[in-house]
Amino acid sequence: MALITRTAGALHRRPRLRLTLLLTAPLLWLAVLYLGSLSVLFVSAFWTTNSFTSEVVKVWSTDNFHELFTVPVFRQVILRSIGVALAVTALCAVIAFPLAFYTARVAKPKWRPLLVVAILTPLWASYLVKVYAWRLILSEGGLADWMLKPFGLGGPGYGLTAAVLTLTYLWLPYMILPIHTALEQLPANLLDASADLGAKGWRTFRSVVLPMVLPSVAAGSVFTFSLSLGDYITVQIVGGKTQLIGNLVYSNIELNLPMAAALGTVPVVVIVLYLLAMRRTGALSSL
């Protein structure tokens, strides 16, 4: 008993030690699983394959990475993937902001929890179900065509646009939630103070609301960006012939594992760069 009390006391006085002991096991697990598999990926990207037998040859070379930047197809696909991720992120932000503004500040307080649940419900449905639903919507003569017909327009059909739309739908909740939280926590006093000093609604929005919510937009964008960059199923289902990094990784796994690994490191590097950029907005502290 005394020993336990003494140990507890010692731990209480040394918060760092306590934290270390507490976190060691999960951190080790994380390190082995996460970083371990990442480094296996990274190392294998430097190997090559025998082009006849498709067997991995464990000889160190940077050829794979060289190819990534020189072979036009690879370059195009990488840029296209980043472009898709950015477009999805931008669309999500533009759509999420007014929605979150409504759920957090316009709707009556008693409805707000319900609205949050409504935002979350799509996350409970199966990914594939949602994507196939969009495949139906975007199919020839589908809902999209039917709705745009009165305007003399047609749906986008399967392709890059369809992939961007579907991904936007899929990841939208991840953008709405942080913005909703930030808007809800925005002190009403600050809005009063702004109006008090002579600012009209638009001015208050630009100078007070937006800067204070921006870190949360950035936080949401970390989700939408990285989820979009890693996705390859949606594009297979609604993207027509469009290829993204994920598809190339997938198709290379059988034939050329090291090349697939090299391709696989690309999103990792891009996401790390993106995180570094977002860190400057203070987004990571609001995650």
């Binding site: 002190p187 006093n189 600050l190 009063d192 103070a193 008090d196 000093l197 002579g198 009209k200 204070m212």
Partner: peptide, 18 residues
Amino acid sequence: APFERDVHTVFQDYALFP
């Protein structure tokens, strides 16, 4: 509206823009 009145307020919790 508040912005149309020639009065300013000092709030109890100051309401400074962080």
